[in-house]
Simulated assay, not measured.
Amino acid sequence: MIPDISAVLSARLGQWADSQGIPVAWDNVAFEPPSGAPYLAAHDMPATPRTLDLSLTCRTFPGVYQINVVVPAGSGRSSAGALARQIAALFPEGQELAGDGFTCWVSGPPAIFAGVTTDTTYTVPVSLNYRADIVS
């Protein structure tokens, strides 16, 4: 079994974003960025799975889930920083998220990185490490 960790993390982010009225750009889904308003862009970056035992029955599936907070360039850092802190609080270290036949854990504190400016946007990445262990 290969767990769909991205679906679990995306569901949590999506529910929160919907409640806040913030659009999310999901991987491989058509998206038109809102003009002059913040939005999020979510990306799952799975790492190589590992087998933990000699009987080949316990596997761990680690990775990084990154949510980019995107605001218009020139709007300052405070609005992006505030959204980034809210997202980090949504995924605290130790958070358990149940999936279809597995549980995923946030395996470290979320990191909020320095913002990156382009001609039109200011982006603040929020990354969290996750892990799911599967015993067959």
Rank of each mutant, 00 (worst) to 15 (best):
V116A: 14
T117N: 13
I67F: 05
S127T: 15
T60S: 14
I22S: 03
N68C: 01
P38L: 04
T121W: 08
S55H: 09
L40W: 01
P62E: 06
L56R: 12
N129M: 07
R77S: 03
L9A: 06
A88L: 03
T121F: 12
F113H: 13
F61S: 02
T123E: 13
S127I: 04
P62V: 03
V24F: 08
R50C: 00
A111C: 07
G36F: 06
G14F: 01
I67W: 05
E96K: 07
Y122N: 03
R85I: 06
T51K: 01
V116H: 10
R59Q: 13
S78L: 14
F31V: 05
R12V: 12
G94H: 06
Q86C: 05
F113Q: 09
V24R: 08
G74S: 04
P125R: 04
A98M: 07
R131G: 10
F31G: 06
I112C: 10
S10Q: 13
V135F: 14
G81Q: 07
N129H: 12
R85Q: 15
S55L: 10
V124A: 00
A25G: 04
Q20Y: 02
T118M: 05
C58N: 12
A98P: 01
A89Q: 12
P72S: 02
G115N: 06
L9N: 02
L40S: 02
A7S: 15
G21C: 09
G101L: 04
R77P: 00
T118I: 10
A25Y: 01
V70N: 07
F31Q: 04
